[in-house]
């Protein structure tokens, strides 16, 4: 079973390369049970989205 620390590393890795089947399955299982990591996952997506929007901001 993955713990949260391993899950966060996998979520990050998944943003940079395709995860293996085993990695994906164990991550999905973990996310089903762990709200903190689900939030973390959404936050990672938001970071990426923010970084894409950032250059378009007028300051």
């Amino acid at each position: 079973m993955l713990n949260c620390k391993q899950a966060t590393a996998l979520m990050s890795l998944g943003m940079d390369k395709k995860l293996g089947v085993l990695q994906k399955t164990s991550l999905r299982l973990h996310l089903m049970m762990c709200e903190g990591c689900r939030n973390f996952n959404k936050q990672m997506q938001l970071l990426r989205e923010g970084l894409r929007k950032f250059p378009q901001q007028d300051s």
């Binding site: 903190g36 923010g50 950032f54």
Partner: peptide, 29 residues
Amino acid sequence: GHWQDHARPSTWGNPESSYSSQQFWQIFE
């Protein structure tokens, strides 16, 4: 290896309201 209570990520809510705030982007920078 599980989240400490104080560190467990909570929801950031709807990001659109942050995106529309100039202050948010200052903090982002």
